[in-house]
């Protein structure tokens, strides 16, 4: 895939990149809100959890490792905006 110089719209190219990071974060935030809302509704409807228990939850080690991989992919998606390329 060809990479080209990305268009910019602000005087300082850094601001274009920063807005990109904000938008990526906002998208991830929205996805997370959507996911959490659905999950909590399902679990509460089935009587599996008391929503208050979420505040005291502690993950196991393998769950922590899976979370770390997910975190790395999240970080890569966030920071790719800095590269200033179309692809």
């Amino acid at each position: 895939m060809r990479e080209r110089k990305e268009q910019t719209f602000f005087e300082d190219e850094a601001l274009d990149s920063a807005v990109g990071m904000i938008m990526t974060l906002a998208a991830e935030l929205y996805i997370t809100r959507d996911r959490c809302t659905k999950l909590e509704r399902i679990l509460a409807d089935k009587g599996i959890i008391d929503p208050a228990e979420i505040e005291t939850y502690e993950p196991a080690a393998d769950t922590r490792r899976a979370d770390a991989l997910d975190r790395d992919a999240f970080a890569a998606a966030l920071l790719r905006n800095i590269r200033g390329k179309t692809a």
Partner: peptide
């Protein structure tokens, strides 16, 4: 400037990114 940025990048985000 934000109008232009959004026009460009909302379309780009649709195709690319995670």
């Amino acid at each position: 400037k934000y109008y232009a940025w959004m026009e460009r990048h909302l379309q780009k985000m649709k195709y690319s990114g995670r």
